[in-house]
Design a protein around this nucleic acid. Structure first.
Lengths: 140, 140
DNA sequence: GTGATTGCAAATCTTTTGCACTAAA
DNA sequence: TTTAGTGCAAAAGATTTGCAATCAC
């Protein structure tokens, strides 16, 4: 990590043109100071409460979407029950542990996808998403 | 298709041990008589109403899940807004048109996935799901 | 008959929205 | 000051649940 957590979060927000409010700064620190993470709005909300950060659930949702739009987060679609956000925005894929609902990154280079079928005219590929669904729970 | 739609639906339900009620038979016919389809509970409900089939939304949900558990349908996770069900249960993947929300099958053989990372001990791969997200709307 | 299935309406859960209040520039 | 951002509480949308009525066997 870094030794200037506050300054880093500030810079991160400024870089994408988001006004660095108290809430956004605090959430950015929770999100980005602890390496690659996968979390839901509810998870982040609980973390914020545990850290005594005063922020509403509505603001959590707002921030998650703004961060995503700004490219600081990525949405991962695993199912219809809730939305996961990934702090790792580099090109990579996921294991999804169906029994515990956990997501685990697979490094981008470790998965190769070859598709013989073209996207139709007038369209272009936005992203290729691979989810490897796993039964059972990882030891970790 | 076939020339015995009713008998086929009946057989399909019997084969998986689901009691062939009026509702399940009618839904099975809607689902399986028209080739490969991707639909949501709401979509199927509207179709049923259009076809003058008396069935409640709760029963639609029940049936979709029972059919899925029985292996007659497959759930496709594209996002958190709603659940899609696919009548094609063979090994294949999907294009997802983000602008119109449509799913299109990609034949199983047309996508190759190579993963160098193993699933952890004590777990096993249930399914590999590839979704190619496409911006724009297909001509069709 | 008897247990499975259905329909309805209410409940639940996640996410969004409207709007008055607060804070950043 | 001026505009963007926040919190609250209500609304919305998808799905589930409880339970009495109905149906398949």
């Amino acid at each position: 990590m870094t030794k200037r957590p506050f300054a880093d979060a500030l810079e991160k927000l400024r870089a994408v043109g988001l006004r660095p409010t108290r809430q956004r700064l605090a959430l950015a620190r929770l999100l980005f100071e602890n390496g690659d993470r996968h979390l839901t709005a509810e998870t982040l909300y609980e973390e914020a409460q545990a850290a005594e950060i005063r922020v509403s659930l509505a603001t959590i949702y707002n921030s998650l979407h703004q961060f995503t739009e700004a490219g600081l987060l990525r949405e991962v679609a695993v199912g219809a029950s809730r939305t996961y956000f990934d702090t790792n925005v580099s090109d990579h894929h996921h294991f999804y542990y169906e029994d515990c609902g956990r997501l685990v990154d697979i490094a981008g280079g470790d998965v190769t996808v070859d598709c013989l079928t073209q996207a139709p005219d007038g369209t272009e590929i936005a992203r290729v998403e691979v989810i490897i669904r796993v039964a059972g729970t990882p030891a970790a």
